[in-house]
Design a binder for these strands. Structure first.
Lengths: 226, 226
DNA sequence: CCTACCGATCGGTAGG
DNA sequence: CCTACCGATCGGTAGG
């Protein structure tokens, strides 16, 4: 019959095709949730930042919780994807650890807002979505623990390491970055990862210092205790 | 407008004097704010847990924000107090670091709820109270940086350390504990601190130069006691 | 995507 | 410390 309506400029404009309205909503929601928190962000705030009315959001999304679930589970998937391929890589544990930290940290650095939401707002998820986060924690935890076990087994890492505590320490370093890292700043994720890995693997103490680290001085510490 | 009733016998009874109503409110608020977040906790929730009506809270406190400010600034003061006396202690940097981590960690461990509120809800503070948190960050940051500089100067710590990154790594370890530590569990704050300090100071890698797992003996003080 | 509106709930107050 | 209530705002919906 007749031609299909020709695509208008607006419809094919790259900026529009690249960022459909739904995607824009998610992005702004990530920003607001990370800045103000989930419950302190109203749907009207969100709509306002996108130049529309509160009720109009519901033409694109089903509700506020959907946004949170989406943000959190996307972040979750990113972490998983970053480490999944590394799991069975044949690398010495120390190199594998460097690479893992770099990838882990890059997910945080490249998604500061979602990462913040991920770490702060998961408690507001429904039980089902809540499981997602718990599962992620377990997966990542297991990944690092296996890595450490491998390292100890192959002789790369110290045999006296407590596996759980070691994994805790590594996770502290990479996860805590969400509080201080500034994507536009001087440090790339790679530099941070290498720096952390250097310190973690080799230690902070002078290599074989005269006295050696780790000696206790109970008498001395007593002086300064309140 | 706050007419506090004259102290009755009940008010000065020991059990009451130990935990005045105001104190109870702060405790429950810490718990609820840490579990559900500040904005997701209503004054009626809070009152309900204390067996009273929402409006009754205002006989004891001025408002919701006061609770948050109090919780956060108390936590802030605890951190400060824990490290203040250590600042000028005459100890080798590695031992000072062990002690600092232990104290820092103990504040977190002994105040899991306030610590969680401190780390998660400071964004909801008024600008004035907000400064409090910023100041704390700076103080603690400076403390650890000075400690590292001291260690490098005296030769205890590696001369090639990046001071800021080192402080970041240490702070990651001690602060992140608020997410995983369980006060009733098997680990005391001291054990966690020693374990972390051992790993940080001596590194995770097998000591090089010595072949295989026949370790020299740096850092064995932190033997985790069963 | 807007206007107009819903019931629910919020922090907080008045007056006892 | 309670009852009763305030204005404001919340997430979400109806109908266009």
């Amino acid at each position: 019959m007749t031609d299909l309506p020709a695509p208008t400029l607006k419809d094919v404009a790259p900026a529009d095709a690249a960022k459909p309205r739904r995607e824009q909503i998610h992005e702004v929601a990530s920003r607001l949730f990370s800045e103000r928190g989930y419950h302190a962000t109203s749907m009207r705030d969100l709509a306002g930042q996108l130049g529309m009315q509160g009720g109009s959001l519901y033409a694109h999304i089903s509700g506020k919780e959907e946004l949170l679930v989406e943000i959190v589970s996307r972040a979750s998937r990113q972490f998983d994807a970053a480490l999944f391929l590394l799991r069975d890589a044949e690398l010495p544990a120390d190199q594998k650890l460097r690479e893992a930290m770099h990838r882990h940290l890059r997910v945080v650095a490249d998604n500061m807002e979602s990462a913040t939401v991920f770490f702060h707002e998961w408690k507001h998820l429904s039980p089902a979505a809540y499981r997602h986060v718990t599962d992620w924690r377990d997966t990542i935890d297991t990944f690092y623990r296996d890595l450490i076990v491998q390292g100890v087994r192959e002789g790369t890492l110290r045999p006296d390491l407590d596996v759980k505590m070691t994994a805790n320490l590594i996770l502290s370093a990479v996860n805590w970055t969400y509080t201080w890292y500034r994507p536009g700043g001087e440090l790339t994720p790679r530099q941070v990862a290498e720096s952390f890995a250097d310190m973690l693997l080799s230690g902070l103490c002078t290599p074989q210092g005269a006295a050696g680290p780790g000696q206790t001085a109970p008498a001395r510490t007593g002086e300064v205790q309140p």
